[in-house]
Design a protein around this nucleic acid. Structure first.
Lengths: 256, 256
DNA sequence: CGAGCGATTGATTTCTTTCAATATCGGTGG
DNA sequence: CCACCGATATTGAAAGAAATCAATCGCTCG
């Protein structure tokens, strides 16, 4: 396995760009759409955190929602704990994405955000953000955009729920690939920040199933992989997996 | 089967309350948190639509996002069409809920909204709403609240993806029950606005599985049902189903 | 160097789907 | 008013996909 292009996410936005203005993720993040002067106003309310080590929490369920976060570097998992203490991963966060937005309208966070690797986040106080959103139309718009997009992605993910394990994992890999690519990393060669178990948990499958699928993909020449290192060899075929295998007649459910 | 308390959703907010001020759903909807004068300002930008008949679309994928909607009465399903034309239901909308919010940040709606029964919706022009959200802090806050809550509910739903069919349907019925109840309808006796097939589609199960589960629940005395009419007979047991089936055995009453 | 978690692989079981055959409901038109 | 129609719902039997149970391997970390 070569390792060309396998830059870790933790390397992103690492240098001392402590301002949105200089942040390479600026155009995906909250400051997108903002003019220079507006960015400066946003920057003024944002604080930076010390880096999180792998396994550390950015926040936990039950903590008061006084701020949300934007991930600068590294990666996180969001998860809920159901009543019997089982972890349910609801999503993975890459640099430039907001964290904690499902806490809007609640006094305390409903879930957890844990670093999958060394990570840094920007802290955005909620009261100040809401106020600023009143004053800056483009910030308001961007906030709604992010929420709307997030909601739609959730819907898409949900709509894949009933597909086969094979399709779901292919979709997952392609989704990651596209997100890495948007951040200037290789779309074809990357290192998974999460374990097989975490992928399975997220997709509603077991560790064993994920492992078997990786093996099968490898045997079919769709990917090459070793541990968390993944190379997409045949993106077209992976896409093909995601589409419905055969055209099954969409029999029921038609309303007029 | 008695039919006490089985008020149809289409009866809600039916009389000529054409203002938010007089709308019984006001406290769940966008105007929650707003003072009298602010409600009046919101009202001024809202239009009412002609009623939708069952099967009619409130909007379709690809239509420009110039407005969102709030459901006044009746019920809708939201769905996506995947590339091979299969319908994927992403949610059901009850009175007082916003529709089309996953269109924020897009030029066109990603999905469809179709009436499950005769329904009425309020139309909220997006440009005006965004502007008003700039001027009214509580409106801004409520908008974010609704989006945040929606996102969280989506996460919860997602986190149930890997549970058994039995658990998922129980969760679904209890969720509906709670939403009906919040709207002043009976929590125990209600009429499903959607078909078995639509429930299955939403939950990632087949029509047959849903049908079998209804039969099983009925045999176990958990519910009584006939067609779309449902009576919850043993809410506690239904809740029990949702909790982990595993070794949380309170007493040995449960037969394998 | 040992311990332990994560990954892989195999065998078996279980649940849900699929295929197939009625049954029932709601509406329509004769 | 009643018979008929299509759509929806129910039920059974068989097939299939993924979970579960179980064992091994490999790597990282202390």
């Amino acid at each position: 396995m070569s390792s060309a292009g396998d830059l870790p996410l933790s390397g992103m936005a690492h240098k001392a760009q402590m301002t949105c203005h200089d942040c390479p993720l600026r155009h995906f993040c909250l400051p997108a759409r903002l003019g220079e002067e507006e960015v400066a106003r946003l920057e003024r309310i944002i604080r930076r955190n010390r880096p999180l080590q792998k396994g550390e929490h950015l926040f936990r369920a039950g903590e008061p929602v006084q701020q949300i976060y934007a991930l600068r570097s590294g990666s996180l998992k969001n998860y809920l704990l159901d009543q019997d203490g089982t972890e349910q991963i609801t999503g993975f966060v890459l640099p430039g994405e907001l964290v904690g937005i499902d806490g809007f309208g609640r006094s305390t966070f409903p879930g957890y955000a844990m670093a999958l690797e060394t990570s840094m986040a920007c802290t955005i106080p909620l009261a100040e953000l809401e106020e600023l959103a009143g004053a800056i139309p483009n910030l308001r718009k961007q906030l709604l955009n992010i929420l709307g997009r997030e909601l739609h992605e959730e819907h898409e993910h949900l709509s894949h729920t009933h597909e086969s394990a094979e399709q779901r994992l292919a979709l997952f890999l392609l989704n990651l690939s596209s997100r890495f690519s948007k951040r200037g990393l290789s779309a074809l060669n990357f290192i998974l920040p999460m374990s097989r178990g975490e992928i399975g948990n997220y997709l509603g499958l077991t560790t064993e199933t994920i492992s078997r699928l990786f093996t099968r993909y490898r045997q079919q020449g769709l990917i090459d992989s070793q541990g968390r290192e993944v190379h997409l060899l045949d993106v077209k075929a992976l896409c093909g997996l995601c589409a419905t295998p055969a055209d099954t007649t969409p029999s029921g459910l038609q309303a007029g």
